[in-house]
Design a protein around this nucleic acid. Structure first.
Length: 484
DNA sequence: TTTTGAGTTGTTCGA
DNA sequence: GTCGAACAACTCAAA
């Protein structure tokens, strides 16, 4: 679109969504290139299906991310316009209000977002508005990467082999140096009145020290990770007591940094090797999850493998509650659940352990875990959350075989041998010697009392015996096989 | 159309 | 203590 297409009095709306950044932002850059005055808009849309409305932890992040974006925009001479309501009404209404002839945004991929956005797009176009949408969040969009016979990939390895060649010649877009302000006199809600931050009680006090939401914070993480940890990533990423992962997930979810920027930067700043390869494959997993959600839009709510529809889950409120609170009596599980509660994030290795524990030891439906994570994770992401829970439960695409039931003691000993992670998050066990830190019930009475621990008082006894739980899970799985 | 090789992350058991 | 096999069959993707 050339400058002459736009007369100066018609502003361009850039609708920010999950792309809260200035660099490598195709919608924003396209708007800047029109030469017209720009209105940067964010809509807090409460019309999302109730179940998948942003959870509490994610709202905390959103608040700070919007605040960071607003500051960046101010530095470039414009304000971020905040509006709340049904996105259809807000976007089409604002276009009317301002006489905007052009609206740009970067695409989102949740099923309900796709439906909502196509209605908005159709309506605006009917009104003579030019609408253009862009890919700002994925390396390759789902409809552009299929098998040779045009079907969606359902297995990760071939998917990644097909994806990787597309990523070599990625060139992230520049950050605009100036934005022509179209926001003068346009009403914006006050961010502080959106109530995104928790109060009474403020349960997010543990978040602040750990996270810096916003584009600058995202780049700090990426640069530091590539400098320090990336080359050893394939080993250290499994150790929850070590700062071995990138912790980019919330930044990625909110689009404070794009996967294209990450890929491009990692390839140039991390020496080729196993660490880099494994890291890029993780970025690939995110794409694969989006690919799955796009092609199987029921992924967050229904078993991908339908034979799981007959799985004998049995839900018990008190048992579920102990899992959520980190009171199962298995230290590595409890450490993970408490890290999640206190910081809005859990190490990936531990996510697998607690998810396996919920679905296989406790036989609680993966959807209960998915909902809990949705509410408590700062990186809560519909595609990743759904695909990963189904993967662990065994009901998903390319899922873990049924007999892969994590032993929480073995996993703890293997990946948190010194017990540093458990001691950080389950401080009542901090004086238990390494040898028993992952199985305090197996410690001789004298050692426990010396460590100041009385099982059942200071720390719970195991909620279920591992071997029995394992047998029970295997039996449940074989009942599935018989039914099928 | 048929065939073939492959498939993120584990545990347990017995030699 | 270490090591390899068994734990199932099935589906996917490509030749």
């Amino acid at each position: 679109m050339s400058n002459s297409d736009q007369s100066a009095q018609h502003p361009v709306i850039v609708w920010f969504r999950q792309d809260l950044r200035l660099a490598d932002n195709p919608a924003l850059l396209a708007a800047v290139n029109t030469g017209a005055p720009i209105i940067c808009l964010y809509v807090l849309d409460d019309k999302t299906p109730r179940k998948w409305l942003r959870g509490g932890a994610s709202r905390w992040w959103l608040h700070h991310s919007l605040s960071a974006l607003a500051q960046q925009l101010e530095a470039l001479g414009t304000q971020l316009v905040l509006r709340r309501g049904d996105a259809f009404d807000v976007v089409t209404g604002l276009a009317d209000e301002l006489g905007a002839r052009t609206v740009f945004w970067n695409r989102c991929y949740e099923p309900f977002t796709i439906a909502r956005d196509s209605r908005i797009k159709a309506h605006l176009r009917d009104r003579g508005c030019a609408v253009e949408t862009f890919n700002g969040s994925l390396l390759v969009e789902p409809w552009n990467l299929t098998t040779k016979d045009g079907r969606p990939y359902r297995v990760y390895s071939p998917y990644f082999r097909a994806l990787a060649p597309h990523c070599d010649d990625i060139a992230p877009l520049p950050r605009p140096s100036l934005i022509a302000d179209g926001s003068k006199g346009v009403h914006s809600d006050a961010l502080s009145l959106w109530g995104l931050l928790p109060s009474s009680p403020d349960w997010a006090t543990g978040f602040g020290p750990v996270w810096t939401p916003g584009e600058a914070g995202a780049w700090q993480r990426l640069e530091r990770f590539c400098e320090e940890a990336a080359k050893d990533y394939s080993d250290t990423r499994n150790l929850p007591g070590v700062e071995g992962t990138s912790r980019l997930s919330p930044h990625l979810h909110f689009g404070e940094i794009s996967p294209r920027q990450i890929w491009h930067y990692a390839v140039r700043h991390v020496p080729a090797g196993q660490g880099r390869e494994t890291f890029l494959k993780e970025i690939g997993w995110r794409e694969f999850s989006y690919n799955l959600l796009y092609h199987f839009d029921d992924l967050p709510d229904s078993n991908y493998q339908q034979k799981f529809n007959g799985f004998p889950w049995h839900f018990e409120e008190s048992v579920f509650k102990r899992w959520t609170r980190g009171q199962t009596g298995y230290p590595i599980v409890d450490a993970g659940m408490r890290q999640l509660w206190q910081t809005g994030w859990m190490h990936n290795r531990v996510r697998m352990i607690v998810a396996s524990f919920l679905t296989k030891h406790l036989l609680i439906d993966w959807r209960r875990g998915e909902e809990w994570f949705w509410d408590t994770l700062v990186d809560a992401d519909l595609a990743n959350n759904a695909a990963s829970w189904q993967w662990v439960a065994g009901s998903g695409a390319d899922a873990a075989p049924y007999f892969r039931i994590f032993n929480p003691v073995t996993q703890g000993e293997k990946f948190d041998g010194s017990g540093a992670y458990v001691r950080e998050w389950v401080p009542e066990l901090k004086n238990v010697p390494d040898k028993f830190i992952h199985a305090p019930w197996a410690a001789p009475a004298g050692i426990l009392s010396q460590a100041g621990v009385t099982l059942g008082e200071d720390y719970p006894r195991p909620i279920i015996d591992h071997s029995k739980a394992r047998e029970r899970a295997l039996a449940a799985f074989s009942s599935l096989k018989d039914a099928a």
